[in-house]
């Protein structure tokens, strides 16, 4: 009997324990369930946000596609406009040259046959007329050169800049002698350039240096060219990780006010009167265009009466050797 009671008690105790365990498990389950509900809510919210973002992305993509289309359209328009401009320039330059050449030819015939028949005043006017015709001829030729300096004729070659400089100095031989100019070539390297365009570029800068000298002071021009990495060039327009050929042409001429350092590269910009310094105001614009055809950069620094320095940077298409 006692044994039976004891057994019952033990069973009851077990049952109580089991119940307790069950209650605890239920509690846990409920806790999990509510946690799950919260997580579900969170997920739902995230999904909603994602959908909203996706929607926004689609709209943004459409916008971008549209902008791209517009850009392509503009680019095509620009190419067409440029072509037209080029054609217009070629035609008008040719059509301008033709009558001008005839004026010059007729004048030269009067000069050979009837010059002495002119009065003294008449002769002065006659010479003035010929000078004006000549400066118009130069202007048209310069404009033509400018118009034709495009990237169509890209034939790059690795060439020793010393060769190009020698060619230019030979072309300018007479002026150099006439002005007692000293040309100092300090250091020279190779560059990957369009030969005839680069000769034109160097020609324009050196002839500028010869032209804009201080009266009574022989021009002294220093030329150097060396290779250096973009990050050593002190020019923020250059790519830091490319190697550049840096050409520097410095003179002791009349220089310019520093505020004009960008302006001097624009077409028809002249800082000095025609009376003092001849020229058409296109030379440096051509120079800039040529440098841009080479994916390079040209800058001018100077001070009034303290000379001008032109720095040209042309990428070499090689990774820098050092730095």
């Amino acid at each position: 009997m006692v044994k039976q009671d004891e057994d019952r008690d033990a069973l009851a105790e077990k049952l109580i324990l089991a119940n307790q365990e069950l209650a605890f498990q239920n509690e846990e389950k409920e806790k999990r369930a509510s946690e799950l509900a919260v997580a579900n809510l969170e997920l739902e919210f995230q999904n909603e946000t994602k959908e909203k973002l996706a929607g926004e992305l689609i709209i943004a993509n459409h916008e971008l596609a549209f902008q791209n289309q517009e850009k392509e359209k503009r680019a095509a328009e620009l190419v067409a406009a440029n072509k037209e401009l080029q054609l217009f320039l070629n035609i008008s330059s040719h059509d301008l040259q033709e009558p001008l050449r005839k004026i010059q030819m007729a004048a030269s015939r009067i000069e050979t046959s009837d010059y002495l028949a002119l009065s003294e005043k008449g002769r002065v006017h006659f010479v003035k007329m010929q000078e004006a015709a000549l400066s118009m001829q130069t202007l048209i030729e310069d404009l033509l050169t400018y118009a034709r300096t495009n990237s169509d004729e890209r034939k790059f070659e690795n060439i020793d800049l010393g060769i190009i400089i020698d060619e230019v100095l030979d072309e300018l031989k007479d002026t150099i002698e006439e002005r007692n100019a000293v040309i100092e070539v300090i250091e020279i390297c190779e560059a990957n350039v369009i030969h005839f365009q680069f000769r034109q570029l160097i020609h324009n800068i050196i002839s500028n240096a010869l032209k804009f000298s201080i009266p009574g002071k022989p021009p002294h021009i220093r030329i150097s060219a060396d290779l250096k990495p973009g990050n050593a060039c002190l020019n923020d327009q250059l790519k830091q990780d490319l190697e550049y050929c840096h050409i520097r042409i410095a003179d002791n001429g009349i220089g310019f006010e520093p505020i004009y350092r960008e302006k001097i590269f624009e077409v028809f910009q002249r800082l000095y009167g025609r009376e003092t310094y001849k020229g058409t105001g296109i030379g440096l614009a051509i120079a800039k265009r040529i440098v841009e055809n080479h994916d390079g950069c040209i800058t001018a620094t100077g001070e009034l009466n303290k000379g001008a320095t032109f720095d040209i940077y042309i990428p070499t298409l090689k990774k820098p050797q050092h730095g």
Binding site: N90, H94, Q97, E98, R101, Q104, M105, A107, S108, R109, E111, T112, Q137, R148
Partner: peptide
């Protein structure tokens, strides 16, 4: 009158012998 490179190249290619740019004075 033209000394346009294209004219020079084309006429050379088609067998002209010499290219003269019309001078501006009689001499």
């Amino acid at each position: 009158t033209s000394s346009y490179e294209k004219d020079i190249e084309d006429t050379f290619q088609y067998g002209a012998n010499v290219y003269i740019k019309k001078p501006t004075d009689f001499d």
